[in-house]
Each structure stands twice: as C-alpha cells, then as structure tokens.
Design a protein around this nucleic acid. Structure first.
Lengths: 259, 259
DNA sequence: CGCCTCGTTGAAACGCCTCAAGCCTAGTGG
DNA sequence: CCACTAGGCTTGAGGCGTTTCAACGAGGCG
C-alpha cells in the first residue's frame, strides 16, 4: 500500500462518500459542475498522473504542510478540513474552514504559513502536486476559470467571516455561522430544508467563531429559548424563525441598547 | 472629462504617485515584477482598451460595487482601499484592507457582497472590466500566474487576520497589525528601516482590528510605556524591541496568567 | 463498572466597551 | 494675527459581558 505522511492512499474508496454528496456523475465530491476533478480526467485521461492522489483523513488527523511534497493544491472532497493555528499559551483558532469543493493552494506561498491542516471530521482530499496542477490550469480554460472563481468566492467568504469576528456579539456570530453552514453544506438527504447538521463539536465552533465553548453553548440555548431555532440534537439545528435569525445574524442584537 | 460614478478618469496622473512608489520602470504602482499592468501593456499595447481606466479616489470616497460596470477587477495602485461593512446599529468593520498590488475581483461573485469599497487615503486604482480581464488572463500566462499567486497570498493573509481577530487580545492585535503593515507597505524613503507609517487613523485601525478607537489608543500607549515601540507621531511607529513585539504579536500577552 | 470526553449550567472576576472630558492640531473666518 | 470651531487622539471612570473556574450529567468505550 502506498503511503505518504502516514496517509494511506488506498484507504479511500468512492462509495464512502455516497452519503453526503451531490449527485454529479463524476463522484469527485465537488459541488460545482466545472470542478477540477472533471478537468483532471479530461486532461490526463482516466489514469491520473503521479502527483495526484486521493487521501482519507480521520478526525483530528493533520497534514503538516512542511512535509507535503511539491507545494500541492488540496481539493476537499468530503468532510470538513480546517487550518488550525495555535498561540503560545494554548489558545486555538480555526482560521479557515474548508468544505467540499474548496481548495487549499499551498503553491507559491510567499511566506511560511502558520497552522496545520486538520480534518475536523472524517474527510477525503485530492492532492495535486504543483506541476500537475499548473499543467492542468494551462491546458483547461474551464479549470482555470473554475479555480479562480472558487478561490475568489472563498476569499469573500473570509471577508464576511472577518466581519463576524470583528464586531459581532456571540449570539450574532452563532446566527451567522448557522447561515454560513446552511449555504455551504450540501443538504443531507432525509433532512428538512431548514435543518442543518453541524459536522463538528462545540469546541471547534468556538475556535472558529473566536469564542469559548461555554459561550457557544449559552448562545445556542438562548436562541432556543427564544424560539428562533430548536436543537433536537447537539449537532442538529432547525431554524424555526428564519427572518428573526437573519436579523440577529446581521447585527440585530447589539451589546447595549445604546443612546 | 469622462466621468463614471462621480469619478474623474483624467484626474489621475502618473506623477501623483511618485512619492510612495516602487521604482519599477512601468509606474503602475504594483509591488511585484510580473504585475497585471505590465501584461496589460504587452497584451494590448500602449493604448489600453476601453474598459480599463485609472481612477483617483479621495479619502472616504466610495465605489459602490453595484454601480460599477461589467464586474470589474480592481487593482490597487497607490494608497489604501478597504471593504467596509456596516451593521444595522452603526457598527463599522473594515473586513478587507487592500494595499498597492492587491486586487479586488468583483467578477463571478456568486453572491452579493455586503460592504462598500472605500478609500482610506488618497488612492489610485486600475479598473479592468471583466471581459478585458479575462482576455488578459487567457493571453498571458505570467499574468494568470501572477494573479492567482497574488490572490492566494491575500487569502492566506486573511487567514492570519482571522487568527488575530478570533483569539488575540487587543495589544496582541495591535502588535500583529504593526508587523502586517511593516511587511505589506513599501518602505518610504527617508524612514528608518524599523519605522512604519500608519496610513490612516485610530478609528480605521480599530474597525480593522475589531476594537474601539479608545482601546487602540490605550494599546499604543501601553506598548510605548513598556519600551517596545515609540510613537513620535500618532501615525508613525518605531519598533524599539522587535523581538518582544514579535512575542506579543504571537500570543505573548494572554488575558490571564492562567494556571 | 470506571474512565474519559463532551455539552450544559452556575458563579465570580477581569477586561473591554461605553460614556465623558480634556488636549492638540488643522482649518476657517473675522 | 488671532479667535473660534471641528475633528482626532488621549485619558479617566464605571458598567456590562465574556471569560474563567467549577461542577454536573450524558454518552462512548475499555
């Protein structure tokens, strides 16, 4: 079995992601139609070149960027992958949250980036070493456009997230987080249209929203007590009042009533 | 005089930015060698096509993205441009800070983005309507690579910024902000190597760091009292102890001494 | 059954925000 | 030239809220 960095390339099989995937004919796991995977196959044929492999990641498993070969581009196929940063005294932050269809482009980074790539849930990723990826971009216009668009959309999501972190109260952040998940996660079959499954725990939510786990918990109970959401399970959110939740997410719960 | 959105295209002249620019032969204002401007000229010749114009922005002047034509890509030439978001009760956030060499890509945004593009200082921008930009990317490999790299580097800077906003204390954020400016701003002639000019005021710093202006002011005075920096002017920071400032920026000043 | 992790709830404290006032510079008009 | 105003920066004092510390219950697993 081929291994790299303790990852087993063969451990990932297509049918593992049948549960939470879109129904595209190519089961690469990406949302959009013009995904890199499709271009990969049309460009290189069915047999992917060396330097392009799928890997399965267990929850908590890390990809140390320094040990990855040839500055790869990582495409998220299934699950949830985060860039986790640690401060000296133990503070933990999820600086980036990557869901299926997102890319982590480690190529041509002008500076070392601090943080580790960590799977928050069992995940599958597509690694493409930089030479392969560059060849792909130059050969396929659709792949290039798709990649630029996807990167740009992720960038603007980060801007929104900065807005959340900078000036929103904990409850507002949680409300915004619910909407973010709602828009980014594929709806799971068997779920109601206004139900969202949170794929990770309170601690990860807290580290993503810049809060403490206790504060996240309190926020959820507050929203529940007010009838805006309901929590059948700790990781299952049902939006009961979309309008009010939207208002809260957009700043409807300031810190003080103010003058 | 051609005008658009109240902007005057002719009001910008090359010599206006002679003071704070790199010494590249093409005075487009960008940092890197393989900039879009150079590719613009080699691709389209000296006469830029319609849909590619320079504009000068006064401090506080806004570019409403909805009124901009053809989903342009905006290249920052000089100054400092921000994406500013407002919450319903007046809270203001600078979600993105764009300095010379950065791009704001409004093309193919899948969602409306909330916020206005605002000049924090007198600035100059290069607008490229999307058709022009796409033609440029498909014709010039260097322009394409440069744009992807620049976007990706900006994305990772945003990740670092999220780390700042999420879990750092005010003083740590200010320290990190000083380093960010130091690395992103071109050194001004006549300044010492460890002096940084902050191109905007306390309020903008606060809205960028998710703080209140008073807290920013207090942070600067604390760092000054401890001898880590000195502040000859309110907008001129001199780093006196790089090592200690670096420690602080990386989490050396937790909220509590902890167990 | 014991152990560990996770989520929730409670109580207290520290810290940032809020409100307020004073100082300084810059711009304006007399 | 100076009085006057306006806006930005700084400093002070107090309150509210998130953090911190702590305990409890539920679920998973050896």
């Amino acid at each position: 079995m081929r291994t790299m960095n303790g990852l087993s390339a063969e451990s990932y099989t297509e049918d593992q992601d049948a549960g939470n995937l879109c129904s595209l004919e190519h089961s690469c796991g990406f949302h959009s139609q013009n995904c890199i995977c499709a271009a990969l196959r049309t460009t290189f044929g069915i047999d992917l070149p060396k330097g392009a492999h799928k890997y399965a990641l267990a929850t908590g498993q890390e990809l140390d960027p320094e040990t990855l070969p040839n500055s790869p581009v990582i495409g998220i196929l299934t699950g949830a992958v985060a860039i986790v940063a640690h401060l000296s005294d133990g503070r933990r932050t999820i600086t980036g949250l990557f869901l299926p269809g997102d890319y982590i482009n480690l190529a041509t980074l002008q500076r070392q980036f601090d943080g580790t790539i960590t799977a928050l849930t069992p995940s599958a990723v597509q690694l493409m070493e930089y030479p392969v990826f560059e060849k792909l971009l130059s050969r396929s216009d659709t792949a290039r456009d798709h990649f630029i668009d996807q990167t740009n959309n992720f960038l603007f999501r980060l801007l929104d997230h900065s807005n959340d972190l900078a000036k929103k109260t904990p409850i507002e952040r949680i409300a915004a987080f619910i909407f973010e998940l709602k828009s980014r996660m594929l709806p799971r079959s068997g779920h109601q249209f206004n139900s969202i499954t949170i794929p990770f725990g309170r601690r990860d939510i807290a580290d993503y929203l810049g809060l403490q786990p206790e504060t996240v918990s309190r926020g959820f109970t507050t929203l529940t007590n007010e009838g805006v959401i309901s929590l059948p399970e700790a990781d299952l959110v049902t939006i009961e009042d979309v309008r009010r939740l939207r208002l809260i997410a957009n700043g409807g719960r300031p810190r003080k009533r103010g003058a």
